[in-house]
Amino acid sequence: MERVPRVLVTEEAQKVIDQLRGEHGELMFHQSGGCCDGSSPMCFRQGEFRIGLSDVLLGEVHGCPFYMSRSQFAYWEHTQLTVDITKGRGASFSLEIPLGIRFLIRSRPFTSEEKKALTPIESVS
């Protein structure tokens, strides 16, 4: 059975990831929540943001692990996420900000068929 991915990435976002990887090395994403730039995915150098037992790994986007806190995932797990980009100047420490663009999440609910074949999430140990 082919697994349905929980997180996808657009071509435009892949180009930005490549550019940032060239500049900073291996990268990771952590989905934020809350005020201001909350709900935006944050892109960091791999290992810079300390992942813990409170996080889950949803999958990989263009070679970068994509994490979210477990408590937030409980409210998001019924939706498929797509990492996209938009013009604009976000705040936060996400690496793409100096480029004048911002990673952005687009979402859609999984169908009931898809829900039977979702990629399992991985705990962080």
Partner: peptide, 13 residues
């Protein structure tokens, strides 16, 4: 800091 949770965690780190 005022902002969102991921940066909040990073700042605590």
């Amino acid at each position: 800091f005022t902002g969102e949770t991921t940066t909040g965690r990073l700042i605590m780190q």
